[in-house]
Design a protein around this nucleic acid. Structure first.
Lengths: 391, 391
DNA sequence: GTCGTTTTCGGAAACGTTTCCGATAGTTTA
DNA sequence: TAAACTATCGGAAACGTTTCCGAAAACGAC
């Protein structure tokens, strides 16, 4: 009943199974297998983004010529170019970034991995990154690790899958192995660390004055007469935490104050841990007379908790914190901080990454330190003489 | 001197111009044009991300089989699949998102345009969007308009170039024409508006209780005995500003208070404008006894400015604001707000957009209102009886 | 007019993946 | 045991762009 699509023979055509639900035939005459398609439905051309092929068809020329016109090639007649640009504009042509990137082998996109976009510090960093990236013609793709090592690894893979040209990473507080980063670095992907960096990988880094910031805050406290200074640190593995502790210890040693391990508390930055640390300290026979939190938000929490417990600030306990946000100047009492400049950190990191991307072969990793600023406020001013001046 | 690359003839080869800097020859014997390339340099295979072709070569099979193995196709032998997966894992294969997207015609990426990532509200929205998008297997690409109409237009074009599957937009405060959105909508791009929506375009929208939020705040003020209520609004074109003013007016009318146009001030949300508005109001013969700012940050600024001017809050002037952040509860006096839920707004908007993307044909735009919550604090509590309760 | 030169364009390969369309060997059914 | 079927694979087209290579026409100088 079925005619062979090749020889037109009818008698020698037999059925030969199904392929993907469609009846398959075999023509013994011409030795041909073929399937029967219900009907080639009328090819409804869907509306789509216009392509250079569309433009070429309109003008009756070849796609390569259109491409040349759009890419400011010299190998094209000016009149032709104008015609092409006119039609392109008429059809609201937008180049297909996917095809371009696939062809060129670069996406002009950089990936950013941060713990949490909702933290003002990282929002500021992202804004700085976007500014520099946009100016340089790069897109930005942002991922949040939510402070999870596993999610961070997935983020890296997702961004590699997206074939980003480079990566900006601030590690989660959980991250203590860096294989996911090393692997991509080995494959030649430019990577720049910022803020929460790691020393085990040979990448460029943008960091803050973690050591000298801690040092400055503690020296300020000492200048105000505080002697038993507690520190609310971060996870033991976190490098910025370690470095800030080092600054803390160095300042104590310089002024002949012994380090008391009881006064060093490792937290996960959560409010619960802050309160727990505070209550622990207040229960000690020798209570601290001041507290340094390495995360600004914990400083705010400390002030709130101390007010609840009717402890006077700064008379009974002084507070200083690393990092500065608007809120630090508005709370009562206002909070002494070491101000970091997130926007600048973002700008710098993005700049270095793009430098790395462009000079892939010759780039030599280096570390850039963004200077911070000690901002003295009421929470640490026992004596009244040094308001808003560095100790 | 040159031998023809085809017939090997030497005598009949003549020079025939230059093409792209390379000497071009013509062989009169075999009628052939050809150029002379210095030397086909040794093909240095660069290290690259592994492709399915690499895998196929290793196993001596075809790329299509590898693709099938990786895509959980049924048309493949289980043993073959395992072998392929093993090699893929060994070579740390990551599918090339660009090639996949180009082939499938979808990127599984959604674009987000917001005015400023540094504003906590938008950071919260973005976090909500990312949560839902990630769970659904979508990537997110974020652009900031920096409150500029022009930048917003460029953002739309950039995202279209990136071939995002859909768009989430909160307009800049400058934006008063919506052609850039309409154009893409006409081309079939799913678009969902949130927060700063516009009524001129037929898209799905996620909005807050702008009207009833304003209404509730004003009714609360009235219940506290305030009668001359000023409002610091946004740009006259901004829809959310208009709607909140409508809520303000409706509440006044309900309680028989006449609307005084002197007490309506259109600002651009900047601190300077806030202070200007305040000083203007304070200079009036009939000063207001309370102020409603439609942007929470302006409320904070008002409190600071009033404290500087030694005006007592809430006794002389009460303050309420639309929007709530941590800072509102920490400032002295704490600020009465209408709390919006940015994270939820983001979640909802992303959910609707993905719904729109998946059911592109059958999707019918609708508007979803995210309920807010009146949070009464000290800045508006003249009488002391209704702390933390809705009026 | 001849010959080398320049300008301008078309064809085709390549980027990495998916998918359509067959093809083959082995397996079941009648 | 032949016919019908299933399982499994390869080849090639397609996605939209850039770019390499070559061709033709126009141009210039002698």
């Amino acid at each position: 009943m079925t005619t062979c699509i090749k020889c037109g023979n009818v008698e020698n055509v037999v059925r030969s199974g199904f392929v993907r639900g469609k009846q398959r035939m075999f023509c013994k005459a011409c030795n041909l297998y073929f399937t029967i398609t219900p009907h080639n439905h009328l090819t409804t051309k869907k509306p789509h983004q216009t392509t250079i092929i569309d433009i070429a068809k309109v003008l009756g020329i070849s796609p390569s010529t259109v491409s040349r016109a759009l890419n400011n090639s010299t190998e094209i007649n000016e009149n032709t170019r104008q015609e092409i640009l006119r039609v392109a504009n008429e059809l609201d042509y937008r180049p297909n970034f996917l095809a371009q990137s696939l062809n060129r082998g670069e996406t002009h996109t950089i990936g950013v991995i941060i713990p949490d976009i909702q933290r003002p510090f990282f929002a500021g960093v992202v804004a700085g990154i976007q500014k520099v990236a946009t100016e340089a013609g790069y897109r930005v793709m942002i991922c949040q690790s939510n402070e999870s090592h596993h999610t961070e690894t997935l983020n890296v893979q997702a961004l590699v899958t997206s074939r980003v040209d480079g990566l900006l990473i601030s590690h989660s507080k959980e991250t203590n192995s860096f294989e996911h980063v090393k692997l991509q670095l080995k494959k030649g992907l430019p990577i720049v660390h910022f803020d929460r960096v790691c020393n085990e990988v040979d990448t460029a880094k943008v960091i803050q004055e973690d050591f000298s910031g801690g040092f400055a805050l503690i020296e300020h406290l000492i200048s105000q007469g505080y002697k038993r200074i507690a520190i609310l640190a971060g996870p033991a593995d976190l490098l910025i935490s370690k470095t800030r502790i080092d600054g803390y210890k160095a300042a104590l040693e310089k002024h002949g104050i012994e380090v008391d391990e009881d006064l060093i508390y490792h937290s996960n930055f959560s409010k619960e841990e802050s309160v727990k640390a505070l209550d622990y300290w207040l229960s000690l026979p020798q209570k601290p007379d001041s507290i340094f939190t390495i995360h600004y938000a914990n400083g705010i929490e400390m002030i709130m908790a101390l007010k609840e417990r009717n402890v006077r600030i700064p008379e009974e306990i002084g507070i200083v914190a690393f990092g500065d946000e608007l809120i630090a100047s508005l709370i009562e009492p206002s909070l002494t901080t070491f101000h970091q400049f997130p926007f600048k950190i973002g700008e710098t990191a993005a700049g270095i990454l793009i430098e790395n991307i462009i000079n892939k072969e010759s780039f030599v990793p280096y570390t850039k330190v963004i200077e911070g600023e000690l901002i003295i406020r009421k929470s640490s001013l026992k004596t009244n003489r040094k308001y808003n001046q560095q100790a």
